[in-house]
């Protein structure tokens, strides 16, 4: 109807988009410069020359940076699968089976999810040391599962509640047991819930820092956020390597977020609304 507010609107939107992308874009630009370009004065806003040397160098000279990404992938995937499996079962039981302590358990699970990760560290480090779980994928996978199971259980439980219970009751009349109902009826009908939850847990695990820092002490076992943060520089941070490694490490997350935007947003807001 009136023009002025639309211009204001687009200005604000453009501003938000620019601010959101600025650090990422600047980082990508940095990774595409040569070392001289990175440290040049006057500063180079656009890479000149435009080069993929930093990417080549990472593959040839610092393959451990790629290893970090692989580690992150293994841990995040393992954590997601484990969390969805056992969290799905728990969420199903808590949403559909009338249990005496069901409501208490849900609140308990919510309460423990608020523990600060650093407060777990002294004990976790000691126990993992004793159990030989330090520097193992399975160790960090279980640790991350512990952190993100509460979220998973709440998300999936609230998703299961949106399914009409009669289908499961019909299955029960047909002669299915609870496990069979869960596997053959509930899982196929809850795909969107599992996908949204799984994506968010994957992102959570990929991004987790304190536990990954403390429970993976060997360089070769570090996850991407930790490994890149601790990447040794001789006198200063080697920004050409850091920026390139960071771009590589965030690409999977960028891709996942871009593709599954709707599911992630839906999952997040549903989770927070509980």
């Amino acid at each position: 109807m009136n023009k002025r507010p639309r211009i204001g609107l687009y200005t604000l939107v453009a501003l938000s988009v620019v601010i959101s992308f600025l650090p990422i874009v600047w980082l990508i630009l940095t990774s595409l410069k040569n070392t001289a370009g990175i440290y040049a004065w006057p500063p180079q806003y656009w890479p000149d020359p435009f080069t993929f040397d930093n990417y080549v160098k990472i593959v040839t000279e610092s393959p451990e940076l790629l290893l970090y990404v692989l580690n992150s992938f293994i841990v995040a995937l393992g954590c997601t699968l484990l969390t969805l499996t056992i969290g799905g079962l728990a969420g199903y039981a808590l949403s559909r089976i009338k249990m005496r302590w069901g409501a208490v358990l849900m609140v308990f699970i919510l309460a423990v999810s608020m523990f600060p990760p650093v407060s777990l560290l002294p004990s976790l480090f000691q126990n993992f040391l004793k159990l030989g779980l330090l520097n193992t994928y399975s160790g960090l996978i279980i640790a991350h599962a512990g952190l993100f199971l509460p979220f998973t259980v709440w998300m999936l439980a609230s998703y299961f509640r949106t399914l009409p219970p009669e289908i499961e009751e019909a299955a029960r009349m047909d002669g299915m047991g609870l496990m069979r109902i869960f596997l053959t009826i509930v899982i196929p009908l809850s795909w969107p819930g599992f996908v949204a939850t799984g994506l968010i847990v994957f992102i959570f695990s990929w991004n987790e820092f304190p536990l990954a820092l403390v429970l993976m002490t060997q360089n070769a076992m570090r996850t991407a956020p930790v490994g890149i943060s601790l990447y040794p520089g001789e006198y200063a941070f080697p920004w050409e390597t850091i920026s390139t490694a960071t771009v590589i490490a965030i690409i999977p997350i960028l891709v996942i977020t871009a593709i599954f935007q709707k599911q992630i947003v839906g999952g997040l807001t549903a989770g927070a609304g509980k």
């Binding site: 959101s20 992308f21 992102i203 956020p225 490490a249 977020t257």
Partner: peptide, 19 residues
Amino acid sequence: ARLAVLFPWALPTALNTLM
């Protein structure tokens, strides 16, 4: 625009901080 809003949240804090 929505994606732009989502990105900062989705990326690891540790790496955001480095940027």
